[in-house]
Design a protein around this nucleic acid. Structure first.
Lengths: 155, 155
DNA sequence: CCTGTTAGTTGCGTAGCGCAACCTATATTT
DNA sequence: AAATATAGGTTGCGCTACGCAACTAACAGG
């Protein structure tokens, strides 16, 4: 186990803080959830989420600035703007799913709808979990924080 | 694919919104990150995170109210209060790790320190990913949202 | 009893959020 | 062409949340 002082140095530069800078504001996660569920247009987000228009406008700008959504003007109808997930945005799916599964287990109590399934088997995905390099699912008591330099070379 | 109207109904009662109600405030994730890294006391959180004392006080109360941390008075020194993760709180680890890994990949660009390892092999954990029931790692194009009722019986 | 530590609370100013109304550019209808 | 509708915002205003520094209460150790 690392000592407290060592942790403090390291916590300050942790990437969680950086990530929250990009997606930690009140509505950002819910907007992204909408995007993953196929919402694309301003009015869709607004009416679906019930968010205030100015806040939605502001959050969309920020998400675009952070490269999480991209703003695609519609060629056919020049009033329309489509907001689409970038690769960076799509890569937030594990965060959203972890949060959703936690909510299902501890808050709503029931598996919610719709369900995310493997397109092939059409069976629901597994719960998100922490895995060792060999694939074993790990609990907190099987985990340990160590300094990068102390990681032994891979076997 | 489900149609837009169907999604709207379902999005409102999604557990992500409920989860954010509990842990979505500005400092909550950073406090939890601290807790996972072994912080327990008010002053530890305060000096490590640099959070304002009133906000910290308020967030701790809320996290305790939500059953994510528990408030354990110290028997030896009755000034001291230890804040410890409950099972519910510990179960947020996948969320924190997903967020951290996303930050590492897309923001800081480098794997950060300290590193979470499997206590047995002492090798770093795998990236968090979405898996099918049979264990295959799935990308977004291999995934689909369907209504719970349309899930076929397990093979 | 005096000093330091722990865990807060209070007061006050700033930043972020929510609501409703308004605005601009483009489409559609008549 | 004029009138109306639609999409994507912006503005003004009030309220809530947040940040900072100072203060407090309850202990602990000498």
């Amino acid at each position: 186990m690392l000592d407290l002082e060592r942790h403090r140095e390291l916590l300050r530069q942790c990437s969680i803080a950086a990530a929250l800078e990009a997606v930690g504001e009140r509505w950002s996660f819910l907007i992204l959830r909408g995007a993953f569920n196929g919402l694309h247009h301003f009015e869709e987000f607004q009416t679906t989420l019930g968010i205030a228009r100015n806040i939605l406008s502001n959050r969309l700008v920020r998400l675009v600035e952070n490269g999480i959504l991209e703003r695609v003007p519609d060629a056919a109808d020049r009033r329309k703007v489509s907001y689409r997930l970038t690769d960076k945005g799509r890569d937030l799916l594990p965060v959203l799913l972890s949060l959703r599964q936690w909510g299902e287990r501890w808050l709503s109590g029931k598996p919610s709808n719709p369900v995310l399934v493997d397109r092939l088997s059409r069976q629901p995905i597994q719960p998100m979990s922490v895995r060792a390099a060999d694939g074993r699912v790990l609990g907190l008591n099987e985990l340990e924080w160590i300094d990068r330099s102390e990681v032994p070379p891979a076997p």
